[in-house]
């Protein structure tokens, strides 16, 4: 049974459609990144999975149950962290910690203390006195110590300091290696380039990309500049920057050029990053060509 499964869901707010016919399954034990422009519906999708929003159409299954159901039994098996928590309580972090310890059945004190020591966070501080980034860090610590089966993280990287970002992303990657699942949204893909196992891309209320990053990388090749070659006349090729020698690099679908002759000398052997692929994707999206490889 998949932990998270959505089937043909529709969600709108006051007649404004936010999600349209979205179907996806989040692979277990993977670091999944959900990207999309502002207003694409990323946060709403996460809220739907967490059971904070109810859809008008479609099926949402979280651990095989509808998360908005009053009898939903799996609240303690996942953790949703988002920037918009407005907590009205004058307690200290220790007060919250005492409560969380009792709520989550698989709570690990050692995990929590280890992170606490590394990040030098004082539990005596009042929650209300913390910055947005510090609050976010606290909740990630709680989520990791709670040993939940999956985590939903909405835009956490934009508020945590650079050192903290790397620290927590490494921990989250370890968490997925140990079987946990992460579904994280971001606008800045470069932050998550090396962590992502699976990519979801939302655009115009729909899911446009749903693919494992490793497979995606295999679908494309990076070519080195040689404008005498006719392959560079194609429209389904995208410039993605320059190499160390200052030569321009281009990305193209492996499938599209398999019949093209004499490209051996152009192949670089570089693996395309997620950003490279997305550059090409957005070029294709502009209607020049169809994007068969990336279709969700």
């Amino acid at each position: 049974m998949k932990e998270i499964k959505l089937k043909n869901i529709h969600k709108s707010f006051n007649k404004r459609t936010v999600l349209e016919n979205i179907s996806l399954e989040v692979p277990q034990g993977k670091f999944c990144t959900l990207i999309g422009c502002n207003g694409a519906g990323k946060s709403t999708l996460l809220r739907v999975i967490a059971g904070l929003e109810k859809c008008e159409k479609g099926e949402v299954s979280t651990f095989g149950e509808d998360p908005t159901d009053l009898k939903f039994k799996h609240k303690k098996e996942f953790f949703f962290i988002h920037e918009g928590y407005q907590i009205n309580h004058d307690g200290t972090l220790l007060d919250f910690l005492k409560i969380y310890r009792t709520i989550y059945p698989h709570w690990s004190n050692s995990t929590f203390n280890k992170i606490l020591k590394e990040r030098k966070i004082s539990l005596k501080k009042k929650y209300s006195s913390l910055s947005r980034g510090q609050r976010m860090q606290f909740f990630i610590m709680v989520a990791l110590a709670a040993n939940v089966k999956f985590m939903l993280l909405d835009e956490i990287t934009s508020v945590i300091d650079i050192e903290g970002q790397k620290f927590y992303l490494d921990l989250l990657k370890d968490y997925t290696r140990n079987g946990g699942t992460v579904l994280i949204t971001t606008n800045i893909l470069s932050d998550l380039n090396t962590y992502t196992d699976h990519l979801f891309l939302m655009q115009d209320k729909e899911l446009k990309i749903d693919a494992p990053v490793a497979d995606m990388a295999e679908m494309f090749v990076i070519l080195k500049e040689n404008f005498h070659h006719k392959v560079f006349e194609r429209e389904d090729i995208a410039s993605i920057g320059k190499d160390r020698d200052g030569k321009s690099l281009f990305l193209i679908s492996r499938k599209k050029i398999q019949d093209t002759e004499n490209i051996e000398g152009l192949l670089t052997g570089y693996k395309p990053s997620l950003e490279d692929i997305l550059i090409l994707y957005f070029k294709l999206k502009e209607g020049i060509l169809e994007s068969e490889e990336l279709a969700a």
Binding site: L52, L70, F72, K75, F79, Q86, I87, I103
Partner: peptide
Amino acid sequence: DNYELLLNSFTVKE
């Protein structure tokens, strides 16, 4: 105010 935070860990019934 803490409704969303509570809903993160508890069911509506709880």
